[in-house]
Design a protein around this nucleic acid. Sequence first.
DNA 1: TAGATTGTTAATCGATTAACAATC
DNA 2: TAGATTGTTAATCGATTAACAATC
Lengths: 206, 206
Amino acid sequence: MKNMKISDAVVRRLPIYLRFLNELSKRNVHTVSSQDLGYKLDLNPAQIRKDLAYFGEFGKKGIGYDVDYLIEKIRQILKLDKVIPVALVGAGNLGRALCNYNAYLKDNMKIVAVFDSMAAKIGESINYLKVQPMNELKQTIQQLNVRIGIITVPAVEAQSVADQFVAGGVEAILNFAPIIIKVPNEVRIHHADFTTELQSLAYYLD
Amino acid sequence: MKNMKISDAVVRRLPIYLRFLNELSKRNVHTVSSQDLGYKLDLNPAQIRKDLAYFGEFGKKGIGYDVDYLIEKIRQILKLDKVIPVALVGAGNLGRALCNYNAYLKDNMKIVAVFDSMAAKIGESINYLKVQPMNELKQTIQQLNVRIGIITVPAVEAQSVADQFVAGGVEAILNFAPIIIKVPNEVRIHHADFTTELQSLAYYLD
DNA sequence: TAGATTGTTAATCGATTAACAATC
DNA sequence: TAGATTGTTAATCGATTAACAATC
C-alpha cells in the first residue's frame, strides 16, 4: 500500500488517531483494535485500518495495534518526530489563545515568534514571547527556520500576511481570518474559520 | 432540484458564498457569475451552480446571480434571517476571542450568555455579558431560547458541558475542545479543533 | 442577433464500507 | 484449536466536474 498519494481526508484523521492514542497511553492501555478506535472516534473500523495501511502494517492480526508503537509511527508520518517551529501573526484575543494553548507542545509544534502590525502591541509579552513588528518578520522566521505560519489578523490584512510568510519561506499556513487566501501551489494552506463553521450549524436547526 | 437531502459538504460551502457575497454587496457589485465566484473562492463554477440549484433557481441565464438577492436567499437557507441566540461555555482566552469577535453579528448569530466553572471567572464582564456559573446554565439557556452552544473548555470538561447543553435543549454544538464528544442523533455537532488542523499541516512539510 | 451564463444531466473521480482470507 | 482482528480487495456510495441545451 505504500507509495500511493494520500488523500487529505486521510491525513486529517491521523491527528485524531494520535490524540486518542496519546490518551490511551497515558491511561496505560497497551493495545487497541480498530473496533475500539472506531467506536470512540465515531469512525468506521475498516476506514481506520485502511488509513493506517497506507503507511505500513502496524497491527497484529487477532490482536490489534500496539498503542505506543502506533503513536510513534503516526508521529513519524506527520513529521512530528522533531520540533516544528511555528510563527503567528496577530496578537489579538485569538492569537493569544493559540499561543497560550500548549497542548500541541508535546506533539512538537512550537510557536517561536509572534508578530503584530499595531504599534501598541509591539513588545508585549505573550507566553514568554515578545510581540515583534511586521518588518522583522522575514528575517526572524528565516533565522528561526519557521516552517508553518498561523494567521490571526483581520480579513483585510490576511492576504498580505500570507504573502510575507511565503516570502519568508514558510511551507504551510493555517489561516483563521474569514477570507480565502491565495498562495503558490507549493505552499499548503488550511482555513480554520469558525464563522463559517457556526453558520453551517444554523442550517441544521429545526 | 428541491426536496433532496443536502450533503454536509454543500452546507459548509454556503457560508463561504455568503461571506464573499456580503463583501461584493459592500463594494456595490450587483451581479456575479459562478465563474467569478469560483475564481475568488477556489471552487469549480459548476459546483457552485449545482450547490445553489439544490435550493432554487437563483440565477439568470446569460447574466449570473443578483448579489443582494442571492445573499437574501442564502440567509434564508441557513436560517440566518432571524437572530439565533448562542451560548458559550469556557471564558478562557479562546472563549473571550469568540465573544469579542462580532463579525458574525451581522449574520444574525448572537452570543447571549457565557458560562464558566471557575469561581474566579464568575461575574467577569466579557463584551457586555457577565460570566455566569454552570448551575445557571440550564435555566438561562431555556429562558433565552438558546439554540446553539459553543464549547471552549478543556477536553476533560467538554463531554459534561455538552450533556448540559443537550439537557437545556440546544440543537447544535460547536466544540473547540480537543476531544470527540458524543451527543444524541438529533443534536448536530461540529468539531473545530485547531490542534488537529495544525498537525495535519505538518504532513505536507518537505 | 451573438455572446454569456445558467440549470441539469451524464461522466468521472474519489472516498467509504463490506467482506473475507490470512494469521495471531 | 477457536476466537479475534488485521490488511486488502471488491462493491458501494457520494461528490465533483464536464458538457450542453435553454435562454437572457
